[in-house]
Amino acid sequence: MPSSAPRHPADKNAVVVSGPDTDLTAEELHRWSNRLARMLLGMGATAGAPIAIAIDSPVEAAVAERAITKVRGIPQPIENGVLPAGAVLGITHRARRTSLTDEVRWLILDEPATLRRYLVGSDSTITVADRSA
């Protein structure tokens, strides 16, 4: 899991996250994480809540981490299959989901319904009003 990408890099076109198949610029990370943050808010994500991350892709993990911080949640990677204490939401893929607990509500990134919602969701900046809606 990456630590955190730069918050406000000087060049929005600078690559801030790299993976085996793709790179993300600062602007792309911002837009992608806004879409995911809106989905988390729709699932009931709240400030201060730990949100589990069970994602192998470094690019998708960085997007998830940034989205969680945008909703003021606490990104918590799944380590050794152990769910973070207090987590009620999590982000993963279908391949990992079968080995994970049912104790949290999982956002499964590669489910067709999730992909559709993600692709049509707004990528505008998350506001205080968004977080309190």
Rank of each mutant, 00 (worst) to 15 (best):
M1I: 09
S3Y: 14
S4V: 12
A5V: 04
A5F: 03
R7D: 13
H8S: 14
H8C: 09
H8W: 13
D11W: 09
K12C: 06
N13D: 15
V15F: 12
V15T: 14
V15S: 14
V15W: 10
V17G: 05
G19R: 01
G19S: 02
G19V: 00
D21T: 13
D21F: 09
D23T: 13
T25M: 07
E27K: 09
E28D: 07
E28P: 04
E28C: 03
H30F: 12
H30Y: 08
S33A: 09
N34L: 08
G42C: 08
M43R: 14
G44V: 03
A45W: 08
A45I: 03
T46F: 07
T46E: 15
G48K: 05
A54W: 01
A62I: 10
V63W: 01
A67F: 10
V71W: 03
R72F: 09
R72M: 09
G73A: 06
I74P: 01
I74K: 02
I74C: 05
P75Y: 03
P75E: 01
Q76F: 03
P77S: 02
P77Y: 00
P84N: 01
A85I: 01
G86V: 00
I91N: 00
I91P: 02
T92L: 05
R94A: 15
R96F: 12
S99K: 13
S99H: 13
S99C: 08
E103H: 04
V104Y: 05
I108A: 00
L109A: 09
D110P: 11
P112T: 07
T114W: 03
L115T: 12
R116Q: 14
R116S: 11
L119C: 11
V120R: 13
G121Q: 15
D123F: 11
D123T: 07
S124Y: 06
T125Q: 12
I126G: 01
V128E: 13
A129K: 12
